[in-house]
């Protein structure tokens, strides 16, 4: 009999306690700060629970944006490709198997938010987002204003809106400054070589084309379609560019590639080669150009200085 009573009392206590705990949990959930839904560059609506405290970056350009808007302190991991700012290299690195991230390692960092680019396959983004419930923002800017909007989104999400605004205004003023300086010079036509054979270049839908345009260059690949098309030698001959810019790590180390190579009889008559108007990026310059983010202003400055050295004297 006693046992029955005791059992009943215990049962009541357990039920009451459970209800209290559940209620408290429910209540706590409700009083938590809300979440935010933003649109990323893939057009996905991503809902992120606030506040964001732990961020994993899967691309150097994302890392750079985080530091530039003052949110670098939230990063708990980045990649071994990171090089700027200096303290980004000290963070733990997510293993990148030829650019593709290890999902296990990302999950192990228990992030609230993961930043990616389209170099990550859809499967990886899907795994993180839908299986582990970690929010993933994919940034893939196609032009400089897209870099600004990505930074502002990032500022919104991480609670660094004022930092993001300040950085965007800084970038705008630097690029405006460049454009004021070069405004009085006639535009130089330019061939950008991402790879020399066949000549891969930056087409009209790429941020590199926008960097060239912002620096006052006339990209001869403007008429092609797609972000990184192959441009024919015929068109190079026809457009006869005044300047040639070659990316780093293409095997082109100096002008002799053009003047002594297989097609020297063609190149020797191209204006840029005839006049020695050739720029070959070093590693840092290549990173400025190829990583859309806060360093893009250096890319614009560098190209403008090459195109219009008189304007910067």
């Amino acid at each position: 009999m006693n046992t029955k009573l005791i059992t009943s009392i215990v049962a009541v206590i357990v039920i009451a306690a459970s209800v209290t705990v559940v209620y408290a949990e429910f209540h706590k959930e409700k009083s938590q700060p809300s979440s935010i839904t933003v649109r990323d560059d893939l057009g996905r609506n991503v809902t992120i629970t606030l506040p964001v405290k732990r961020v994993v970056s899967m691309d150097p350009s994302d890392t750079q944006m985080m530091y530039a808007i003052g949110a670098g302190g939230l990063l708990v991991a980045d990649t071994s490709f990171d090089w700027w700012p200096a303290n980004s290299t000290a963070l733990p690195h997510v293993a990148m198997d030829s650019g593709v991230a290890s999902v296990e390692q990302v999950v192990n960092m228990t992030p609230d938010l993961v930043l990616a680019t389209t170099i990550q396959t859809a499967q990886i983004i899907d795994q993180l987002q839908n299986i582990t419930n970690i929010s993933v923002l994919v940034f893939e800017p196609h032009n400089i204003s897209n870099i600004y909007s990505d930074m502002l989104t990032l500022g919104n999400v991480t609670g660094h809106s004022s930092g993001a605004n300040a950085e965007v205004n800084h970038m705008k003023s630097v690029i405006h400054g460049v454009q004021v300086k070069i405004a009085n010079y006639s535009k130089e036509s330019l061939l950008y070589m991402m790879w020399p054979s066949p000549i891969y270049t930056a087409g009209p839908n790429s941020f590199i084309d926008d960097e060239i345009t912002a620096a006052g260059g006339l990209n001869i690949a403007e008429n092609l379609s797609g972000p990184y098309p192959v441009i024919s030698m015929e068109q190079v001959v026809q457009d006869n560019p005044q300047t040639v810019i070659v990316d780093n790590n293409t095997g082109v180390s100096d002008i002799t590639y053009f003047t002594n190579g297989n097609q020297s009889h063609i190149w020797n008559n191209i204006s840029a080669i005839k006049n020695g108007r050739l720029l070959i990026f070093n590693v840092t310059e290549s990173n400025w150009v190829n990583e859309p983010g806060p360093l893009t202003i250096y890319a614009v400055q560098m190209i403008a200085q090459f195109l219009y050295p008189q304007a910067f004297e």
């Binding site: 790879w195 054979s197 891969y200 192959v230 024919s232 790590n249 293409t250």
Partner: peptide, 21 residues
Amino acid sequence: LKVANLRGVLFWLLGGLYGAT
């Protein structure tokens, strides 16, 4: 694992006469 210029390699693997002299 190693080659950075995937487009260049892919182009070569599918063939092209762009370099003809």
